[in-house]
């Protein structure tokens, strides 16, 4: 099933639709990108009775970076975690509406959440390497999915670490425990670990909130490197970060997707009053 930007039906709340890809001059347009990779259609998430995310309609365009901002408790993390069904861990959590990934419903009857998560990788707030060696951390995913050959694994580990810009720092101590790395290195290791299973979408849940400014800069550089190869969604509470790294920004407030627009546009000419108040720091 193919969907292009034009073919998509107009969402009901008009302001959340991204119609044109408006990029500032320093950001290159990505060839082959810009196709709706994920589409939320009247998508709501409930914790028991409580509606944490309310009827979201949005298209996430492939190969671009989308940032999700909003005050804490606005449902941005919940939304992100629902994309690869991490919320399944919470028994009281359920959804309505549809969340389409390449046109197929993520919450459909025939979805295998294990295969889904292989396609949609996730990096968490706090770096969470396993208490194993660096090599075993990266190789964990590929091994799960049936790669046994040592040579192939070596290749995957090196490529993933290179992609995560970590190879030069750790190539001589791959057999050391990953918990011995610094926080920033651990987080890049987590990115590399996710890349090793070759996902299409990369979900980053406040990936720099536990890191110092230097490590944060490295992660941000890494996101720029990965832009164009993966569809990236990043939840952040830091608006500067959102404006630095993303092409599109979604602003959530109390579970509602208030505005969804190209980043350059949202931060300079917000359409919604609420967005303006938020980005100008009138509330947080």
């Amino acid at each position: 099933m193919q969907l292009s930007a034009e073919a998509i039906e107009t969402p009901k709340t008009a302001q959340t639709a991204v119609r044109d890809i408006y990029l500032p001059p320093e950001r290159k347009k990505i060839s082959g990108g810009g196709v709706p990779h994920l589409s939320a259609k009247n998508f709501s998430i409930y914790y028991g009775e409580f509606e944490a995310v309310k009827k979201v309609n949005a298209d996430i365009l492939s190969k671009y970076v989308t940032a999700i901002i909003g005050p804490s408790g606005c449902g941005k993390s919940t939304f992100l975690r629902s994309i690869n069904r991490m919320n399944d861990l919470i028994t009281s959590c359920h959804t309505t509406g549809a969340l389409l990934f390449d046109g197929e419903d993520v919450y459909g009857k025939f979805t295998d959440e294990v295969l889904l998560r292989k396609k949609i990788g996730m990096v968490f707030q706090k770096p969470n390497p396993f208490p194993k060696s660096i090599f075993d951390n990266i190789a964990y995913g590929p091994r799960l999915h049936g790669v046994k050959d040592r040579k192939t694994l070596d290749g995957i580990v090196e490529t993933s670490l290179r992609k995560a810009a970590l190879w030069d720092e750790v190539c001589d101590r791959l057999d050391k425990n990953a918990l011995g790395l610094s926080g920033g290195q651990q987080q890049r290791l987590c990115v590399a670990r996710t890349l090793a299973v070759e996902p299409e979408i990369l979900l980053l849940d406040e990936p720099t909130s536990a890191l110092d400014p230097k490590a944060t800069a490295k992660i941000e550089d890494l996101i720029q490197e990965l832009r164009g190869s993966y569809t990236i969604m990043i939840v952040t509470h830091n608006m500067q970060q959102a404006s630095r790294v993303s092409d599109f920004t979604m602003f959530f407030y109390e579970g509602v997707l208030v505005e969804h627009a190209p980043t350059a546009q949202l931060f300079t000419k917000p359409k919604d009053r609420m967005t303006e108040d938020y980005i100008t720091g009138r509330f947080s």
Binding site: L116, R117, G121, F124, L144, H145, R193
Partner: peptide
Amino acid sequence: TYREASLSLGSSKWNTIVTVILPA
């Protein structure tokens, strides 16, 4: 977080228990 990390890499629940949680 170990559980989340493993699941997000496309590991099944049982696999996560055997390869990550029990060793830890």
